[in-house]
Nucleic acid binder design. Structure first.
Lengths: 162, 162
DNA sequence: CCAATTCCGAGTATTTTACTCAAGTATTCA
DNA sequence: TGAATACTTGAGTAAAATACTCGGAATTGG
């Protein structure tokens, strides 16, 4: 599980797609202008999303992309996995050829942690995010919750609307 | 919150440090040979870890690095944050200059998701991992705790193993 | 002093990111 | 049918991040 801007672009695009799924196929050109992602980059991302069977394409005029399954059946983890290579920073690469017990211990711990993060993102679906989005637009921005995280010596205020 | 091999290297190194914390300062050379990470790269990583006050250094012969605080007070999120730049793939960069509501909607959703991932990793400490390492072989993974956060009509299930 | 170690900066090869450009294919509407 | 639309594919590329090398400096225990 790798988490970079690439995955973020993919999730953003998929969210945009989900938000307009009731209006027929969505063209990449539309997503491009709405989300400010270059068309060619979107093409690359959607080639992978299509390959992983998360979206299907409709060619011709009025065509575009559709979600392959319901928003409730597409997890964030799936989207991120589709566009990013699998993370591997081990020396033994799971072959267990590092006989110094120490090495495999921490490797094992990381594998475990990595699995947890993956599970975490597997439990969040596009439907979850879209549902929250619906609520957001309805009740304007009355519930402004401000969470203050302490980072280093500086305070960074993270405002999130729920 | 960005999650790449760099963060993985940092967490691995910090885990190694935690595992040998009772034997006095741990030199980067030791971590290098044990974990298969180049010495110079470790120097870069620990420069940042030191700057973020996660470790302290002891110079001279027999010197090395010590954890700044107890393993229970150092979260995985802190380690990852220390070595990686903050992820920013927005067009408006929080300035709110994207007047097409659509854009900010998905941006906000991602911010929120990102905050959740961050929170998730903030709840896991080095002590948790070290403890699991001790117990791991003994009692497998019986304590599966599932936390479900209910927010209005949308619910996001967060499963975390502790 | 001397060796071990952290510190520091410069440099660099490789990979990833994000994008551009160009050509080609399938589909639909008129 | 034909042209417009839009996906599809591939090549190429600049910028950034990654992971490392090298050389030296500062610090300190023995």
């Amino acid at each position: 599980m790798r988490l970079t801007t690439k995955g973020r672009y993919a999730v953003t695009a998929m969210l945009d797609l989900a938000l307009h799924s009731d209006e027929g196929p969505v063209s990449l050109a539309d997503i491009s202008t709405r989300q400010g992602i270059s068309l060619s980059y979107l093409e690359q991302l959607f080639a992978r999303l299509r390959h992983f069977k998360l979206v299907k394409s409709v060619r011709g005029p009025g065509g575009g992309y559709r979600l392959m399954s319901s928003t409730a059946d597409i997890s964030i983890a799936q989207v991120v996995d589709a566009v990013s290579e699998s993370l591997d920073a081990t020396r033994c690469e799971g072959k267990g050829n590092c006989h110094e017990g120490e090495v495999c211990l921490t490797h094992h711990l990381w594998e475990d942690l990595s699995a947890q993060i993956h599970q975490f993102l597997s439990d969040i679906t596009l439907a979850d995010l879209v549902a929250r989005n619906d609520i957001q637009s309805v009740r304007a921005r009355q519930d402004l919750r401000v969470v203050t995280m302490q980072k280093d010596e500086s305070h960074i205020a993270v405002s999130e609307i729920l």
